[in-house]
Design a binder for these strands. Sequence first.
DNA 1: TCGATTTTGTTCTCGCGTTCACAAACTCAT
DNA 2: ATGAGTTTGTGAACGCGAGAACAAAATCGA
Lengths: 242, 242
Amino acid sequence: MTAARSRRTSSRDDRLERGIPEATIARLPVYLRALTALSERSVTTASSEELASAAGVNSAKLRKDLSYLGSYGTRGVGYDVDYLRYQIAREIGLTQDWPVVIVGIGNLGHALAGYSGFVSRGFRVVALLDVDPARVGEEVAGLPIRSYDQLEEVVAAHRVAIGVIATPASAAQDVCDRLVAAGVTSVLNFAPSVLSVPAGVDVRKVDLSIEMQILAYHEQRKLLAADEALAAQFAGSNVESA
Amino acid sequence: MTAARSRRTSSRDDRLERGIPEATIARLPVYLRALTALSERSVTTASSEELASAAGVNSAKLRKDLSYLGSYGTRGVGYDVDYLRYQIAREIGLTQDWPVVIVGIGNLGHALAGYSGFVSRGFRVVALLDVDPARVGEEVAGLPIRSYDQLEEVVAAHRVAIGVIATPASAAQDVCDRLVAAGVTSVLNFAPSVLSVPAGVDVRKVDLSIEMQILAYHEQRKLLAADEALAAQFAGSNVESA
DNA sequence: TCGATTTTGTTCTCGCGTTCACAAACTCAT
DNA sequence: ATGAGTTTGTGAACGCGAGAACAAAATCGA
């Protein structure tokens, strides 16, 4: 049996064991979204070219990414939209239900609690926690805000593996420590701070202002380039500047 | 003069002309934040090691990143916190004021409008726009919600270069087109859709649910690994499984 | 059945980014 | 002034990911 498997050049099992490149993982959700959109438009089959353009990447990259999951396409035809969609969802783990807690129900926490993109992808917000006693009891997106003290209780009761931190930076590390101690092994951090966690715990950071700053940099370069073009124009009609 | 410059191995000018690697640009805001934190704790000097740990990267990478900006450290000593902070801010373009419009004032737009991380970094929200007539006039974070129809007017009046899209996916491309037509050259897109823009316009995307999905993938792998470990235990006390 | 056509899956090459390792440059104590 | 100790800035090696290009596999018409 092992011999029969090893005779083939590269089985799906081989790839899964080796693990899928991070860069590919990061794009799978994008493909998933594109496939969902196609499915909603009753498209049953799509070529790598069509899919790639819907996802905003080039087709070679898309094919390579999909090849890490296995051989789900048909040469000469393309990919079955619903089938591929299911396979990607399964690969990412979206075919199961992920209970999630959100800590820090300020403006951002509020927005996250009501974000439809979570629910529609197998994420289930099981609790909203906040330190502010004045807010406890208030209902947000159909869920009551509960006390920060109940963190351990909630995590244990729902077997929460993923925690979302939407507190100010000053509280983030404390919240993170408590989440991890309670059993959370993945943290999505919206607070602008660097979290330190023990090995085996994943942290991903989303920083709203960093992206903006990156845009500012490029914007500044555009202004600079425009200035230089203008300066060159003047220099041309003059002696070379000292 | 040109000869004198070319004699030196690599001047700051050379690097700026070549441009700074994207990966480095993306980290500069993180360094900036770390420096600000240090400055607030009245730390005047920091080594690459200290800075790196505060920023959550390794020190070699940090030194190389900073070297793209110029030679702002002192060997044997480290970096002057405030000086370096200013240099990075200037490099990114945060020493100037960037007017910004936010389109789509739902939960997320609301959170963005009130996000302190923008204001404190030279971004100034000059207008909030929404299509819903019922919401127009409502005040959010000290600014009135204005009609979507006023988009062109607002962009022109404030010379807005950066637009933020926080609408549902279905509206995003339309909003983007209008922003670009009105003169915006950088777009920060929070809607889960792929935007197409003419050359010269920068788009960055922030997708709240993608990060969550990446966590789910890793979380699933952890479960899988645990299962396998368990299975191996059983297999050991038994005949090798078929 | 066979050839033409389409489209996938994969190999190969190239470039970018990360990391190591060290020389250069600075401080400080003596 | 000099040597010991630090810490930066950078050259070089390495590994990963992107993209081009092609072989393999499927469909379809004759």
